[in-house]
């Protein structure tokens, strides 16, 4: 995988994450809703940064799909939190790929920070520590 391919994959992942967290947020309230809102904002910033990096590499950023198939039905707060946890786990793997494929230090720094942020977020959404977050 080239650096640009990994950037595009991460961008596609962030598009999907924004959709999923948006859906999950509709089933959350109070502190959980605020956490989801913060998470949404962080992923929006990541999406924008990834778009910039793709443009800087001379490519056209991957566009978001109109809608995404959710891996599980979101019917209440528990399933909403489970969806966000799954999104963070999948994104960690995508950022792991980006760390490995990165050629420019700026891209690698962004990817490492993204992986750490995903790993931390997993704990906020009911996850437990794992030996290798971001492993495929």
């Amino acid at each position: 995988m080239t650096e640009v391919e990994a950037l595009q994959a991460a961008l596609a992942g962030e598009h999907a994450a924004l959709y999923g967290i948006g859906v999950a947020g509709g089933k959350l309230s109070g502190a959980r809703f605020r956490s989801a809102t913060d998470s949404y904002e962080q992923h929006r910033l990541n999406r924008d940064r990834l778009s910039q990096l793709v443009v800087a590499a001379g490519e056209t950023p991957a566009a978001a799909e109109p809608a995404y198939d959710l891996p599980q039905a979101v019917t209440n707060a528990a399933t909403a939190a489970a969806l966000i946890l799954l999104i963070e786990r999948r994104l960690a793997a995508v950022y792991g790929d980006l760390v490995e494929s990165a050629e420019k230090p700026a891209v690698r720094t962004f990817a490492v920070n993204g992986l750490l942020a995903n790993a931390g977020a997993q704990l906020s959404w009911g996850g437990t520590p794992v030996a290798f977050p971001g492993a495929v």
Binding site: V99, E103, V112, G120, A131, G134
Partner: peptide, 22 residues
């Protein structure tokens, strides 16, 4: 991890992420 590249960079980043969680 930032100073390395390829698979060694990924390994150190994943270990860092695990340590952050722990």
């Amino acid at each position: 991890a930032v100073k390395l590249s390829g698979a060694p960079a990924r390994l150190l980043a994943m270990i860092a992420a695990s340590e952050l969680q722990l």
